[in-house]
Design a protein around this nucleic acid. Sequence first.
DNA 1: GCAATAACGAACAAAATTGTGAGCCACTAA
DNA 2: TTAGTGGCTCACAATTTTGTTCGTTATTGC
Lengths: 124, 124
Amino acid sequence: MRKENSTNTINEQFLFQVCELNSAIAIIGGRWKAQIVYSISQGNNRFHLLKKELPNISEQVLGRQLKELEIHAIIIKKEIPDTVPLGVEYVLTNKGLDLVSILESLCNWGKLYADGKEISACLA
Amino acid sequence: MRKENSTNTINEQFLFQVCELNSAIAIIGGRWKAQIVYSISQGNNRFHLLKKELPNISEQVLGRQLKELEIHAIIIKKEIPDTVPLGVEYVLTNKGLDLVSILESLCNWGKLYADGKEISACLA
DNA sequence: GCAATAACGAACAAAATTGTGAGCCACTAA
DNA sequence: TTAGTGGCTCACAATTTTGTTCGTTATTGC
């Protein structure tokens, strides 16, 4: 999928070195990721619950996003024993939980200015 | 550039409605955006200074990112009078400044776990 | 006269992300 | 027996993002 030596990849790696900020953005910057993390934190921690919350997402895409969040250790996949068919629960890690509060700040920031807070230049 | 009725665009709009969080992510989620905002906040507020900080970025790409940040009212472009050739300064708005502190949280979050903080599941 | 500076813009190409169609497993309820 | 559930995976197509090439402005220094 990724070309090792594309300028795109090289630039991405460069940014990762400059500051962890850029790795963080890369983790949550995808189309559905931030919303999925937030939804899980609200208790929609099952595949089918997420599907209900995000009716437009296809199962393929949802599965892909969840796997990537798992790779970055934001969530952990847990099988629920003695269920048929075998249920799966997604649980936030402490890393994921810390992220949620930052996402909440971002959300409030967006709301504040969407609600018409005045915007003006700040003099340095 | 954007197709009005692509599923991709429709899904993006859907997420924008769900929560401002998603608009916020869309604003800062691009390849260089967060880093540019952060660099400007550190005083690299001129086109050529940003080029020096980000040696791999092409001028076209830098210009494009700056324009988009301007559209979202994160920065404002100011011409510096009596300079030859005419200099341009990028100034953060209050909206941009509020964003910077969130970016700093993100950065710290990334650093914390990159430095090896233990990760474990949080029980709900 | 020629290169350099500061700050871009347009058109195009490459690469990456996102979405689609189909199918799988092992059940259970009607 | 047919449909439904929960939770996926594969290969491929559509769309979007990112990067490249070339050109522009007006001026100064060599």
